[in-house]
Design a protein around this nucleic acid. Structure first.
Length: 432
RNA sequence: GCCGGGGUAGGGUAGGCGGUCAUCCUACGGGACUGUGGAUCCUGUGACUCGGGUUCAAAUCUCGGCCCCGGCCCCA
């Protein structure tokens, strides 16, 4: 019988785990510098938590199941909805704003490809109950800070305010279904398709060349903060969009106060779903194939959707596996430090007991130490020590033991020195 | 769900117009070698993704499944 790993899942060996932990800790450090605290929610939830948020259609992309009590459950496909549930269940009376962050795996039944797995990890945050645009600037600044800290220098931040386009829809009385169709086209980011859908022969919105024209121009607006005046000019006749635009402008000002400059305004970022109410942003890193998006987020009123009081929430989720890909793409795979610093080798069988004793001494002094467990002969021990890359080998032989000493061999220089057993730990610590 | 490229010891590979015990490196085990052998030498274990077809004969040709790698769709 042969057991294969389920499709779209991965095993992580020592080196990968080490790298992932490093990235994890870097992110934790940054998030905590901004005052966010870590929370954890279950790996599975009620199915309807996610269907309420995203619609019934997502069920075929979920790992859902009925448990022995007949409950409809699913492995979580993302962590935003569980956080909203957590808030409603136990944090409604907590002083606002609330700053939460999370790290954990999610599951989606999708076709695996580069940067896309069926079990994948998200590192994200939610800022609940802050006001726009301060909260948004704070969250974007943290995101930018975190990505920089990871050494990813080529990330592109794209920021949009959905209120602008919503205002236009309102002005022209566009019905919801048509709105949704347009948003889908915008989200695809395909200029040609957009052109056809807006100002082509068979536009989605019929008999209204004005909005089509305005939308098409708007979607073309991508650039630094200097384009804000073009946007202002374009939407000035449409009062319904003014408030959002003012917010957008204030966000940009605040971002600059936060010393964040590496972003683009991009009116083409849509992020599909209806519950986004304010700014949205996405972060791309080129060179990751089709899955170049490493982060997505925005401001939304999910909590209201779940039946709570209106509380604005801003958050984002980093695609952890894609971040790892991006780091590797940029810096190459790093040679990692050996896990063990010292290896204790008994020269003869008679000194084996002493070797264990010395090993424990080193370990208790916080020196990662290994010792032979398979009764290898001395000749193999040096070869083994060399292979695992230790810096020191402690040779435990009868002759030296007569004076209560051992020989410490520096594996990099080949030099060796006689050291009293009691001084071994100090000697190694000094040399590291 | 669809399209393309793949699947040979634990890891990396050679072979591929069908035809001796399937190549090499590495890793792993054993030995020579008894406090320096981090070496060298000898030696052992270990693989053609699975199933059908063509054939005297299939790792090799053919069809299908499974899986991997890209891409499309989707992407909360």
């Amino acid at each position: 019988m042969e057991f294969v790993r389920p499709r779209g899942t991965r095993d992580f060996l020592f080196e990968e785990m080490r790298q992932r932990k490093e990235v994890e800790n870097t992110l934790r450090k940054v998030f905590e510098n901004y005052g966010f605290g870590e929370v954890q929610t279950p790996l599975f939830e009620d199915l309807n938590l996610f269907t309420t948020k995203s619609g019934e259609e997502i069920v075929d992309q979920l790992y859902n199941f009925t448990d022995k009590g007949g409950r409809e459950l699913t492995l979580r496909p993302e962590i935003t909805a569980p956080i909203a549930r957590l808030y409603l269940n136990e944090m409604q009376k907590t002083a606002k704003p609330i700053k939460l962050y999370y790290y954990g795996s999610c599951f989606r039944y999708e076709r695996p490809q580069k940067g896309r797995f069926r079990q994948f990890w998200q590192f994200g945050c939610e800022l609940i109950g802050a006001k726009s645009p301060e909260g948004e600037a704070e969250v974007i600044a943290m995101c930018s800070n975190a990505i920089e800290e990871l050494g990813i220098t080529t990330a592109e931040f794209n920021v949009n305010h959905l209120g602008i386009i919503r205002g236009l829809f309102a002005h022209f009385n566009i019905d919801e279904q048509t709105q949704r169709k347009i948003m889908i086209v915008i989200d695809k980011g395909d200029k040609k398709l957009l052109e056809e859908s807006l100002i082509g022969d068979d536009p989605v919105i019929k008999d209204n060349p004005e909005i089509n024209e305005v939308l098409f121009k708007l979607m073309d607006m991508v650039g630094d903060s200097s384009i804000i005046k073009d946007i202002r000019e374009l939407v000035s006749p449409y009062e319904e969009a003014h408030e959002a635009l003012a917010e957008f402008e204030e966000l940009i000002k605040t971002l600059e106060s936060y010393q964040v400059f590496n972003y683009k305004l991009n009116l083409g970022v849509a992020r599909g779903l209806d519950y986004y109410t304010g700014i949205v942003f996405e972060v791309y890193v080129q060179g990751l194939g089709a899955q170049k998006q490493v982060c997505g987020g925005g401001t939304y009123s999910l909590i209201k959707l779940f039946g709570g009081e209106e509380v604005v929430s801003t958050g984002f989720a980093l695609g952890f596996d894609r971040l790892i890909n991006a780091i590797e793409e940029l810096t190459g795979k790093k040679e990692l430090e050996p896990r063990i610093t010292a290896y204790v080798a008994a020269i003869s069988e008679s000194t084996r007991g002493k070797a264990f004793e010395i090993t424990q001494k080193l370990r208790l002094s916080d020196i990662p130490t290994d010792v032979d467990l398979s009764r290898k002969k001395f000749k193999k021990l040096l070869a083994y020590a060399d292979k695992i890359g230790v810096k020191f080998t402690v040779l435990v032989g009868e002759r030296d033991l007569e004076d209560n000493k051992v020989t410490i061999k520096n594996m990099e220089t080949g030099e060796q020195e006689l050291v009293a057993i009691d001084d071994v730990a100090d000697y190694i610590k000094k040399e590291i």
